[in-house]
Write a protein that binds this DNA or RNA. Structure first.
Lengths: 126, 126
DNA sequence: CCTGACACTAACATTATTGTGCGTACTTAC
DNA sequence: GTAAGTACGCACAATAATGTTAGTGTCAGG
């Protein structure tokens, strides 16, 4: 068994500017193409696999599964499989996951609100 | 010449859940591996190319240039080249860029603070 | 004279990420 | 009986992102 709170947990802080820092890995999962969207979708409510697939336009089953596994390993998403037929699996955010999801959501909101402004620059510049 | 404020800018909001929405593109630039770090670095101050390169551990010149160009086209970063020798180029955030950078920074802070907790889960699970 | 700094670009090699199609094992709906 | 839904895993292909190397032109420092 591991200690309840490791030394690193109490003392160390990640440094994203450092190439070798593990925080880089977390960043990649969270900000991956579908990671952002999964976190946002799950922030609203617990979802099944195929619900997520329908909610998130353009995601393939393979990528959705992959992304969910990353986030699960990071302890941000929890998976609950019901032993029934047909299979029923529920994905939800962990307390930790709710933390990131909130931040991610704020960023996503900003992007949704400002995309039109940004896209105007694209057409103006050609 | 384009209209001062396009219809889309006043009326439409991006929808990240829609596969074809342009907001997806903005999201990709902002959350790209180096995009996040560039925005954070520039939030603290205007920087020269090689300063950014030194600040952001592990970034190659090619990727830094690429990322800066994406963000510049999106109107988030502005580039100012002084006509001197040796070349002197300054990168800074536009007002729009300051908007995203603030949101990105909050996310990055969260990750830096919680990476230790997350990484603990990695070792525990093996 | 030789090197390094500066801010890149172009060409090429290599990963990483993503997509596609198929298979699973069972059930309900048509 | 046939198709579709369920939640994926696996193999392979394609595309996107990233890295590596070399080169540009000028000038200051050793």
């Amino acid at each position: 068994m591991t200690a309840r709170k490791s030394l690193s947990q109490r003392l160390l802080r990640g440094d994203l500017m450092a190439a070798a820092c593990p925080s880089r890995e977390v960043l990649r999962h969270v900000t991956s193409r579908w990671g952002v969207l999964v976190l946002i979708a799950l922030e609203s409510r617990t979802c099944r696999f195929s619900e997520l697939r329908r909610m998130i336009g353009g995601v393939s089953e393979r990528m959705l599964a992959q992304t969910l596994q990353w986030l699960e390993r990071d302890g941000l998403v929890s998976r609950r499989a019901l032993e029934v037929v047909p299979p029923h699996v529920e994905y939800s955010l962990t307390p930790l996951g709710r933390g990131v999801a909130a931040k991610v959501r704020v960023l996503a909101d900003w992007i949704e609100e400002n995309t039109a402004r940004i896209a105007d620059g694209w057409v103006a510049a050609g």
